[in-house]
Every structure is written in structure tokens, then in C-alpha cells.
Design a protein around this nucleic acid. Structure first.
Length: 587
RNA sequence: GGUGCUGUGGUGUAGGGGUUAACACACCGGUCUGUCACACCGGAGAUCGCGGGUUCAAGUCCCGUCAGCACCGCCA
């Protein structure tokens, strides 16, 4: 029997058609003299009816069990009105079966495939091939395919070339811990799996490719989270001779088309842009969630002359006083406010002051230090009205930012201000080039060491390194960083100058980056690019809170593949061949 | 490296010192010609993640350990 139709596609208009279907027994309802089978294939589910008139088929139908693989031949029939099932897209019809062939049997599954049934995550991962049979997960696989297809379409339209780069690569300093792969042909030496194709794509620019992209697998040997797997996929893009607005327009077109075609969501272009400093001041984070307001306001001037010693002291020490106006937040309970206070403290603040505005005056932790003129100034500055609550942090600027940023997120959650199904995207630009690493006692690149400083900031590289801004940009969606990129350094002297600033040993630079520095000497064009987190994007589109759900074969938090049981020990001969001795082989 | 949560028939849960470990779904057998979470009747199935301890007595309390998850550190 050869398939003529897909189960999920049959409609009333197919009534009368003879059809051969294949798929899995989703459910069987045996009424004794009449057997119904829900047949499931990739396209969906359709009901089969087997009556005793089809003698042989009926005999087979009685032996069917869940997840048996079958082929059936029959006739599509319109259902009588009272037997229509509105829950199925094929509910108008059923297939009257004439013949059934069992293509394969199935043991009873370790867990049910009903979509709403919660099942232990470890069990799902062990039997991932069964978990993936769930229609919901099938849907995320399809969604992911759609996203990459659209990405390829849009970038191809703009003349980008998809180029593959090596998986067996070289370990370089900076950044995450590498996964290492021992070399058999050169015992004692190791490849590293790429943390990203960063250097390759820049070298492709030197090679004159001008416009490159890749759906690139990346590897980082760091501890995992709901949104972090040891291997993950980036939409990796690089472009020569670009102007930033032109490049951002292409990325925006790509993202907008992905949202439009997969979810029917229109993202307004151009995307809003916010400098890092502005994002930090107004939202307390470099990845602000714009789905709700609750912006942070500087109220330092208002408190400069008040009796509130805590605030005055913070200001005197060069700090700030900032506030969030929580409109209509009178409903917040003491418990909510305590939680907000704890959140602020967890992010370094000494405390969280608050003021509830009443029809006349105010109550709250600092109410008795706030005379009417100050209250009036606060109302004017923040727009606060009776019924609103103001939350304050007085501290060093960085602490006030981080603490109020955290308070803002929690507040939005508690006040139910995070709208379902909304997508708010923006660019955050002009990040600092460097940050100070107290452990290593040196400056390290915030993005990566190939990022170009802003032309006007080069001068500060040696004198005020933390003031140097980078030609960098992140793409932020609903509070998640979904991509980041930069214009790159393309002159050797500039690159060397930055390496020097990072305190990299010259011999090490020569050994690890010599090839790259040399490449920059042979007419490297100005270029830049971006890398977007495909897994996160698909997860956001699918409304999933962890990226395991959008990866076909993900790993656990401890980096294990529970299905294959990787990683695993290897035979001693394999190790010998590689010149490797494993210490502490206990157990 | 750290913190927290979870671990009991195949699955999801209940049981929080005491005698036969409970329920639902799934599974097996039976009845049933319009079901679609079919229904009804009957049945089988668990040394409670693992190890140690406390106790007359341990799914239950304690310690350790393993696994999964969430988070901090970490991850340009």
C-alpha cells in the first residue's frame, strides 16, 4: 500500500475519495462491534472507522495497540452532523477502512504522548524520539525549520553567501572555556570546538566574500541554564564595507520577516535604538523589557536639600537617588513590598525606600521625611498621582541601576504588567568596550577583543579605558538578548593596541593570533557583523521558557545526553592512540 | 564551586514514624455498532532513586550520595 493522502489534510471536500494512509495508532476506541482508530501522521490526526463488514480489516483492528505503525486503505466519508468532532481539523470526515496492514508493532510507551500530561524531564530526554512525537514538539521543529528557511531567503536576497567553517578549530585565550578534541596524528595537541566562528568570518571578509552568513553550531564548556546548552546555534552574519544603518536595516528585515511569516506578528521598523547608558539609566539593565513602562527616574536634585540623611549621604558621596513610579500600585501588599525590598538588596542596594501617595500627603517608609514641597516636586518629576507608589534607591550609580532594574522586573510581574503575546524589540548600542576583571586584575573585552572602539574614544584607551565606548549593538527582545554584534577592528596596529590594553602577553598573541594579525596586513576591508541566538529566538516564538524544547536532541544541565548516554568512557586503546592517560579513573 | 526544589507501580500523584502503601491514567482480560479522554465489569503491577544511621518499628526523621530541574558564580 502506498500513501495517497496525509491524515491531517482530509476535509469534507475529499468525501468519496479512496485514500491510502500511513501513520501511528494515536488511540483506539473498541466498541465491540465497531472500532474507531485515531490515525496520526506528521500532518495531524484523522478518525478511521472499522466495521465487521470489512472482515479481515476488523480482525486486524482488534489487535492494534497504541503507536503501532499501520497502513490503511479506505474511503473518505463525510460524517453525519451529530458525529462531527469540532476538536479535530479533520472532524468533518472519517475514513471507512477496507484493509489494514500492520507495518510495525510497538511496546507500551514509557509515558503517554498527550500534550498536557506532565512527564519527568529525565524520562522525556531518555526517550527523546518518543517525546518528539508529541504534536507540540513536532510543531517547534517545524517552526525552527521555518525560521532558518526565512533567514536563508532574506540573506540570500541581499547577496549573502552561506559558508561553512570548521568545527575542529583552535583554542584561543579570552572568552569561554573550550571543548577540546585530541589529535591522533599529532599526539599531545588538541583542536578546540569553536565558541563561535568569529575569526573565520572575519577572515572570510579578508578573503573578499563581503557578505557571509551561516547557521553555525557553537560550543562553550560552561555551566548550563534554562537558556544555555553546551552546543547551541547562532545565525552568524558578517559584512564588509557596511554602514551601520544599512546593516541594521538588513537584520531588521530578516527578524521582521521571521515574525511576520511564522507568527503573523508585525514588528515596526526601524527598531527603536537605545544607548547602553540610556538603557541602564531608564531600565537598570542592558537588555530592557519594553513590554511595560515603570521607567527609572533620577530624583537626586529633589532630595539634595532634604532631611533624609540616607539620601543626602549617598548624593554627597557622588551617588544618585533614583525612583520608579509604580502607578496604581496601592494594591501591593506588605509582602509584595518586602519581596521588592529583598530583590533590591540582593542586587547590592542598602534598602528600598517607598512612598505611597495619598489624596493628601503620603505614607510609607520615608513619608515623615518628605515635606509637602518635596512631595510636589516628586509628583511633578515622576508624574505620580494618589494611589501610586514610588520606590527609591540611593546608592552608587551602578548599584542604583542594577537594584531598580531588578525591582522593575519584579514589580511588573507582581502588578501583572507583562502582556501575553506582545513582542517588543530594540537595539541597545554603544556598550563600553572594556570592563575591569578584579580576579584577573586586568581589563577584559565586554563583547570580544575584535570589537572596534568608537573613533572619538580611541584616545581614552590608555587613559580612561572604562570610558571607551564600542561600535557595538545588541538586539533585545522582551528582556532577552537575542543577538549581539559590532564593527570590527580591521587594521593590524589597532588590533595590537587593543591586545596590549587587554594585557595579553606578546608571545601568546603571536602564537594564538599571529595568523589573524598577518591577515589584517593584506588588505582587510572594514567590516562588522552580528550573531543571533537561534535557539532563543525560536523559544520566544514558540512561547517556551527553556531552549531544550526547541532543540531536537538537547542535553541536561550537567551536559549529558540521556538518550545516548554521552559523554561516556572510551576503550583504553583509543586513549593510547591519542597519547592520553586518564587520571583518577575511579569506580 | 554554591543555594533551593523534586525523586513512591509503566506515567502523574497521595501518604510526613506503626500492622494489607492509596487514587487516576496507562496496561491485560471480558461486555458493548457512533465513539472521539468511549463506557462498564474484572485483573495484574511498587522491597517508595541508592548507601548508611536513629528507632522496638523508617516512603516517612537524620547524614551522605546519585539524577533531573531552577537559580548564583561562570558564560565576550
Amino acid at each position: 500500500m502506498h500513501r495517497t493522502h496525509d491524515a491531517g489534510t482530509l476535509r469534507r471536500s475529499d468525501a468519496g475519495t479512496r485514500a491510502t494512509l500511513v501513520g501511528w495508532v494515536h488511540r483506539r476506541r473498541d466498541l465491540g462491534g465497531l472500532i474507531f482508530i485515531d490515525l496520526r501522521d506528521r500532518s495531524g490526526i484523522v478518525q478511521l472507522v472499522v466495521t465487521p463488514e470489512a472482515k479481515e480489516a476488523f480482525r486486524v483492528a482488534e489487535t492494534l495497540r497504541s503507536e503501532y505503525v499501520i497502513a490503511v486503505r479506505g474511503t473518505v466519508k463525510a460524517r453525519a452532523p451529530e458525529t462531527v468532532n469540532p476538536k479535530l481539523s479533520t472532524g468533518d470526515v472519517e475514513v471507512a477502512v477496507e484493509a489494514i496492514e500492520v507495518l510495525n508493532t510497538a511496546k507500551t510507551l514509557p509515558f503517554g504522548l498527550a500534550d498536557d500530561a506532565p512527564v519527568d524531564e529525565a524520562l522525556r530526554l531518555k526517550y527523546r524520539y518518543l517525546d518528539l512525537r508529541r504534536p507540540a514538539l513536532q510543531e517547534t521543529l517545524r517552526l525552527r525549520h521555518e525560521v532558518t528557511r526565512i533567514v536563508r531567503d532574506v540573506l540570500s536576497r541581499h547577496g549573502f553567501l552561506e559558508v561553512e567553517t570548521p568545527i575542529l578549530s583552535k583554542s584561543t585565550p579570552e572568552g569561554a572555556r573550550d571543548f577540546l578534541v585530541p589529535s591522533r596524528l599529532r599526539p599531545g595537541t588538541f583542536y578546540a570546538l569553536p565558541q563561535s566562528p568569529q575569526l573565520y568570518k572575519q577572515l572570510l571578509m579578508v578573503a573578499g566574500v563581503e557578505r557571509y552568513f551561516q547557521i553555525a553550531r557553537c560550543f562553550r564548556d560552561e555551566d548550563l541554564r534554562a537558556d544555555r546548552q553546551p552546543e547551541f546555534t547562532q545565525i552568524d552574519i558578517e559584512m564588509s564595507f557596511m554602514s551601520l544603518p544599512e546593516f541594521q536595516a538588513i537584520v531588521e528585515e530578516m527578524i521582521a520577516e521571521v515574525f511576520e511569516k511564522t507568527r503573523g506578528i508585525r514588528l515596526e521598523r526601524p527598531f527603536p535604538r537605545l544607548s547602553y547608558d540610556e538603557a541602564m539609566d531608564r531600565y537598570g539593565t542592558d537588555k530592557p523589557d519594553l513590554r511595560y513602562g515603570l521607567e527609572i527616574v533620577d530624583v537626586g536634585e529633589i532630595f539634595r536639600e532634604t532631611e533624609l540623611q540616607v539620601f543626602r549621604r549617598a548624593l554627597a558621596l557622588g551617588g544618585v537617588v533614583r525612583a520608579i513610579r509604580a502607578d496604581g500600585a496601592a494594591a501591593l501588599s506588605r509582602k509584595d513590598i518586602a519581596a521588592l525590598e529583598a530583590e533590591a538588596k540582593a542586587h547590592g542596594a542598602q534598602g528600598l525606600a517607598w512612598l505611597k501617595l495619598e489624596a493628601d500627603g503620603a505614607s510609607g517608609s520615608i513619608a515623615r521625611f518628605v515635606p509637602e514641597p518635596v512631595l510636589a516636586a516628586l509628583r511633578a518629576k515622576t508624574g505620580a498621582e494618589p494611589g501610586d507608589v514610588l520606590f527609591f534607591v540611593a546608592d552608587r550609580r551602578e548599584v542604583a541601576r542594577a537594584a531598580l532594574g531588578a525591582v522593575r522586573r519584579l514589580l511588573a510581574e507582581r502588578l501583572g504588567r507583562v502582556p501575553d503575546g506582545a513582542f517588543r524589540i530594540l537595539w541597545v548600542t554603544d556598550f563600553p568596550l572594556l570592563e575591569y576583571d578584579p580576579d584577573e586584575k586586568r581589563y577584559v573585552a565586554l563583547h570580544h577583543p575584535f570589537t572596534r572602539p568608537k573613533a572619538e574614544d580611541w584616545d581614552k584607551l590608555e587613559t580612561e579605558p572604562l570610558q571607551v565606548r564600542a561600535e557595538s549593538y545588541d538586539l533585545v527582545l522582551n528582556g532577552y538578548e537575542i543577538g549581539g554584534g559590532s564593527l570590527r577592528i580591521y587594521r593590524k596596529e589597532d588590533q595590537l593596541r587593543l591586545f596590549r590594553r587587554l594585557g595579553l602577553d606578546e608571545a601568546e598573541v603571536a602564537e594564538k593570533f599571529g595568523f589573524f594579525l598577518e591577515a589584517l596586513e593584506y588588505g582587510a576591508p572594514p567590516h562588522g557583523g552580528i550573531a543571533l541566538g537561534l535557539d532563543r529566538i525560536v523559544a520566544l516564538l514558540a512561547g517556551r521558557s527553556n531552549i531544550r524544547d526547541v532543540i531536537a536532541f538537547p542535553k541536561t544541565q550537567s551536559g549529558a545526553d540521556l538518550m545516548m548516554e554521552a559523554p561516556s568512557r572510551v576503550r583504553p586503546e583509543q586513549l593510547a592512540e591519542l597519547g592520553i592517560t586518564v587520571r583518577a579513573l575511579q569506580g
